[in-house]
Design a protein around this nucleic acid. Structure first.
Length: 275
DNA sequence: CCCCATGTTCGACA
DNA sequence: GTGTCGAACATGGG
């Protein structure tokens, strides 16, 4: 479920309900796997009377900053959701963590528990947050940075490379397929083959897909436009919106991948690879 | 019962 | 050290 835009959407749920309010109560169902960074216990004193000062996202990461040496990193994993509940809320199955801010509960729910909540009790934010790579819509995510990623992993498939959070924070399985389809690149194409104009096109497409996802899913969970691959990719018998030919699914880089065989091409062989 | 799942991490291996 | 791959994690749905 959660990639860039879904994460952004969930974070806003908590932000709208809790920003600026005082934390009055905390519940954690230890030892759930998603709470593995709590060290097996929770000291309510460290959470009490903290004001929620900001809720930010970066790629798939969410960070809550509180007023007194408390940060809370949240990753939604595969099935994590952020909910808001009234004061009389009682935990349901898979609701492993919650904080009450004034009259609202901010609830973390995650059936598969691949997600992760990371508390950090310091004045300064944790290193993993300080070291976050340039976001897809930031100036730092330049054509040059994309070229570096490609050059560093010349034999990796494009599909696999786009899933690397170090270079492409927020891209997940469906966004990777969408980007490659829009840029007409075969998902199994080796990274070294993307150069020149195709590199510029890929760079642009990454930004457009990120922006488009944030404007739709990120705002109100509405689907992206029907001329995207998005709404066609999992339907049985789904057709490519460009060629009208049947979409194909196969496993690439260990993930189920949807693409349009005629539409998406490998491109020219990389000269440096010729024997 | 079987297979699949919008993610990350860790161990094995080249 | 580097890069790549598959399994594992825990649970639910088709």
């Amino acid at each position: 479920m959660p990639e860039l835009a879904e994460v952004f959407y969930h974070a806003r749920t908590w932000r709208q309900a809790g920003l600026g309010g005082l934390l009055n109560e905390v519940r954690a169902h230890l030892p759930a796997r998603c709470l593995r960074d709590f060290g097996g216990q929770l000291d309510p004193a460290q959470w009490q009377d903290q004001r929620l000062e900001s809720v930010e996202t970066h790629g798939k990461q969410i960070m809550l900053q509180f007023s007194k040496k408390l940060w809370l990193g949240v990753h939604l994993g595969m099935t994590g959701r952020l909910l808001c509940a009234p004061a009389q809320w009682l935990p349901e199955r898979h609701q492993h963590f919650a904080i009450r801010i004034e009259t609202h509960w901010l609830v973390y729910e995650d059936s598969r528990q691949f997600g992760r909540l990371r508390p950090h009790f310091q004045e300064a934010p944790p290193d993993w947050w300080l070291a976050r790579p340039p976001g897809l819509l930031e100036a730092g995510f330049s054509r040059q940075r994309l070229a570096q990623a490609l050059a560093r992993h010349p034999r990796t498939t494009l599909k696999g490379l786009l899933l690397d959070q170090n270079y492409f924070p927020g891209i997940g399985n469906w966004m990777a397929d969408e980007i490659l389809w829009q840029a007409r690149i075969h998902p199994a194409c080796p990274a070294a083959r993307i150069q020149g104009r195709r590199l510029s096109l890929l760079h642009q497409t990454i930004r457009q897909v990120a922006a488009g996802a944030l404007q739709t899913i990120g705002q109100d969970y509405r689907d992206p436009p029907s001329d995207w691959l998005f709404t066609h990719r999992w339907r049985n018998g789904g057709l490519c919106p460009r060629t009208n030919a049947p979409l194909q699914r196969s496993t690439i880089a260990g993930r189920t991948t949807c693409f349009s065989p005629q539409w998406q091409i490998y491109g020219l062989p990389d000269p440096s690879q010729t024997v």
